[in-house]
Design a binder for these strands. Structure first.
Length: 814
RNA sequence: GCCGGGGUGGCGGAAUCGGCAGACGCGGCGGACUUAAAAUCCGCGGCCGCGAGGCGUGUGGGUUCGACUCCCACCCCCGGCACCA
């Protein structure tokens, strides 16, 4: 009698051994084909939760699979360690952010090791290490040098809870992505990365295999619109300005009966008449107090005020009023629109409310355009009320008007994007300092590369003042100008942590390089990432930023190729047993450490993979764990307690066993390729049942049995690395199972010898046959007609038609 | 409103170039082993019906010898976007 399967007794032992032997080390410049597998690195919150396991364990299984297939696999892990929680802990509990973070990292390293994942720990990176953020700062300088980083005053998102500005991508439904506070809008001078320079290219996903929904989300976020800029001269004495508007409907320009500026538009103070100044300024004040949430509400009735000024429609010379209204956004297009109430519902509502003219400029087959409109209509048939363009068919209208505008110098075709430049400065301490110095004589001066890193000072006061805590350390702020040596001040804002994670995949390939972010030769060998896995919640943040970062790096000549991650897989969200998101307040949290304690890491890994398709996520049910535990016990028992082994190479049972094994290899390999862990484990369970039946018979062919058991262990190794290693050793096989080759199958043996064929009469099942998959129709038909129930159903009638699908069915139609 | 994803037993889920609906697992029921229990092993398992049989993949139509799968119309759930000119 052998000992029972006790996961706790073997898992730690093997984890230590693997690490000591560095069997998962990625080998630079190895002859094997390389495979860079990357899973999103965690924020060191101090506790590894089930969501981390759900993201990482299947990724690990896939990386192990590739390793066994003969790839030189790079599967690294690290910590995205800058960010607000550390600083908030400092504010609340007086703990130093650095100490807090490193203590958490230490704890999480232990928890990660319990997973038994094949991470190459020699390549670990921690983004808050000066050794790492030196290069984050270096990247900032490269962006600055290439005109991709700039400082500007702009309307920014301000989170009152976090006391810092945020990028547009980090505002979700008007709330802070982290703290959920309602975001305010403030005019502030901030640092930006020019992501808009790559807007057009970011819309293309050529040559990469990414989920459709991520691509759609990124396309929506970038929001490309084609149209034209048109210039409306201002009719105000002494003001020689033109209002440039962006429109996707230049063909409706003759219907423009007023112009609307965003309340924050630069020209507002210049054009507003003295009589209107008071109401205009009051409206601006009111608009500036509004949060995004209030302003974005589409239900809300539109408001606005007249500036008292007029502009001239450059097409027909018509004098039209200039209004301001907050339904026009200063951040989109030019911050000004021509309003065409007849053909735009928003403008229609505004015109109706304030009694402005509504002039249709298209005919419509079902609408009498000579009568007052009830609502705007977007598309008509031919242009009307449009001077020389009258009669132009709708499909030619835009082109005709734009060509005219370009000829006359009153406009030009244009493309605009919803995407804004990436606001990267944060008024917080726990981030990489922006390596910039302000000198009274030289102005904005980048810190020379050889003076990096600009170290974060320690022993800092944390008060949420809305200014970076760094401003309160004069000995840090005050410095000398790198150019002239005169007195200068450091930039006190730190960088958005999404910058740290935009290039981390590049650092893993050369994590200890002190001379440069990574060596070009290693980049040539390892990059780009072959398989990236992580959550879809990063669709328009990290996953967009890192593509931008890569393209910029490519244009700087630092990397080759157009995309950083060739394949992306988004796992779903793991939920608590009650189907809700796990949260302490709901009390539905499943703690991985407890699952491991109770069932073992192998069982927990497998259960997470077994519950359903990885991309769907779903509830984690701990009671279902029994099934996985039983299966692993059975694997244990089958490996260690064989039937009586005899020499029967030609017995039909031996062939059947071989067939089952080859079929299992085929199914498991195919499912592994496509991350179908749930069906793959189901196949394993079936194969185990088949082995069990063989064993029940009492004896089996020695070679076939041993081969089957060894193959089973090899196929399970990526899923459950500890138990398979233990059994591999007990079977006397060479260490380590994880360095063995993935089994291959014989396609002929993997095919079913006989399959069940359904016999139907008029589409209803009346019987079954066992036939070869490629049996000829004649055989199938004859055998089918021999069946009693089929004859009864035919009731003596002659089939009008017979449908035969080999391997599937025979259907008699009467 | 627009764009994705989804709706299948008591539960998690399988099966889609149209071909036995419910693989595999949980829970349930029955049996074997045991003084007993645990563990293990074997069997049953959509619904209605004693049965032959009938009905079943969100709803209603359609195409087809045959539809979870394709087409049309709709309902519900999840995620994303939403005054973007």
């Amino acid at each position: 009698m052998v000992d029972r399967y006790e996961p706790r007794a073997i898992e730690e032992k093997w984890q230590r051994r693997w690490e000591a032997d560095r069997i998962y080390a990625a080998v630079d410049f190895d002859q094997r084909p390389k495979w860079y597998a990357l899973t999103m690195f965690p924020y060191p919150s101090g506790d590894l939760h089930t969501g981390h396991w759900y993201a990482m364990a299947p990724s690990d299984a896939h990386a192990r699979f590739r390793r066994m297939q003969g790839y030189n696999v790079l599967f690294p892990m690290g910590f995205d360690a800058f960010g607000l929680p550390a600083e908030n802990a400092a504010i609340k509990r007086g703990i130093d952010p650095k100490e807090w973070t490193y203590a958490n990292i230490e704890r999480m390293r232990k928890q990660l090791r319990m997973m038994g994942a094949s991470f190459d720990w020699d390549r670990e990176i921690v983004t808050c290490d000066p050794e790492y953020y030196k290069w984050t700062q270096w990247w900032f300088l490269q962006f600055y040098k290439h005109g991709l980083a700039y400082r500007a005053r702009a309307l920014a998102n301000w989170c009152p809870g976090c006391q810092t500005v945020l990028a547009n991508e980090q505002v979700i439904d008007g709330r802070c992505e982290r703290s959920d506070d309602i975001v305010e809008r403030r005019f502030l001078t901030q640092w930006f990365f020019r992501i808009t320079a790559y807007a057009e290219e970011l819309l293309k996903f050529d040559g990469i295999d990414w989920p459709e929904r991520i691509k759609v989300m990124q396309r929506n976020w970038i929001g490309r619109s084609e149209g034209a800029y048109l210039d409306f001269p201002v009719d105000v004495p002494g003001v020689e300005e033109k209002i440039r508007v962006f429109t996707t409907r230049p063909d409706t320009v003759y219907g423009a009966t007023f112009v609307v500026l965003a309340p924050e538009h630069d020209l507002v103070p210049k054009v507003t008449t003295p009589e209107q100044r008071a109401v205009v300024e009051e409206y601006q004040r009111q608009a500036s107090r509004e949060t995004e949430i209030e302003r974005m509400s589409t239900e809300r009735e539109k408001t606005g005020v007249f500036t008292g000024a007029y502009a001239i429609n450059p097409f027909n010379g018509r004098r039209i009023p200039i209004w301001i209204a907050d339904y026009v956004l200063v951040t989109y297009g030019t911050g000004a629109i021509m309003a065409v109430p007849a053909h735009d519902q928003r403008d229609f509502e505004f015109a109706a409310k304030y009694g402005l003219d509504i002039i249709p400029v298209f005919d419509h087959p079902e609408i009498d355009v000579t009568k007052p409109l009830e609502r705007a209509f977007e598309h008509g048939t031919r242009m009307i009320n449009s001077g020389p363009f009258d009669g132009t068919p709708a499909e030619d209208a835009i082109r005709a008007v734009v060509e005219y505008a370009e000829r006359e110098g009153i406009g030009q075709r244009a493309v605009t994007y919803r995407l804004r430049d990436w606001l990267i400065s944060r008024q917080r301490y726990w981030g990489a300092p922006i390596p910039i110095v302000y000198c009274d004589a030289c102005g904005t001066v980048p810190v020379p590369e050889d003076q990096l890193p600009v170290l974060l000072p320690e022993k800092v006061q944390f008060l949420p003042t809305g200014q970076s805590p760094l401003t309160m350390i004069p000995e840090w702020v005050n410095t000398s100008c790198p150019q002239c040596g005169g007195p200068a001040r450091r930039e006190t804002d730190t960088m958005d942590t999404f910058i740290c994670s935009s290039w981390y995949q590049m650092r893993y390939i050369d994590p200890h390089n002190a001379e440069r972010p990574f060596s070009p030769a290693l980049a040539e060998y390892w990059l780009p990432v072959d398989q990236y896995t992580g959550g879809a919640e990063h669709a328009v943040m990290h996953l967009l930023y890192t593509r931008f970062f890569w393209k910029a790096a490519r244009d700087m000549g630092l990397v080759k190729g157009d995309e950083p991650m060739l394949r992306l897989f988004n796992q779903g969200v793991i939920l608590g047993p009650d189907g809700n998101r796990m949260s302490k307040s709901r009390g539905n949290v499943v703690a991985p450490d407890e699952q491991v304690e109770q069932y073992g890491a192998d069982a927990f890994r497998c259960q997470l993979m077994f519950i359903g398709p990885w991309e769907l996520g779903g509830p984690y049910n701990p009671t279902g764990m029994q099934g996985i535990v039983r299966w692993l016990r059975r694997v244990w028992s089958l490996a260690l307690e064989p039937p009586q082994l005899v020499d029967a190479p030609d017995a039909p049972e031996t062939l059947a066993l071989r067939r089952a094994m080859h079929k299992t290899i085929r199914v498991v390999t195919d499912d592994m390729e496509h991350f179908r862990f749930n069906t793959l484990i189901a196949r394993h369970m079936e194969f185990c049942s088949e082995l069990q039946r063989v064993r029940e018979r009492g004896q089996a062919d020695r070679d076939a049995w041993n081969e089957a058991v060894e193959t089973m262990l090899l196929l399970i190794a990526p899923l459950a690395p500890h138990i398979t290693e233990e059994l591999w050793e007990r079977l006397g096989k060479p260490y380590s199972i994880h360095l063995q080759r993935w089994p291959s199958y014989d396609p002929d043996l993997a095919k079913d010898e006989e399959v069940e064929v359904v016999v139907q009469v008029n589409g209803k099942v009346r019987g079954h046959l066992r036939l070869a998959p490629d049996a000829p129709e004649e055989v199938a038909r004859t055998r089918a007609l021999e069946l009693e129930r089929v004859r009864a159903a035919l009731d003596g009638g002659t089939p009008r038609r017979v449908i035969y699908v080999p391997g599937k069915l025979v259907n008699f139609v009467v």
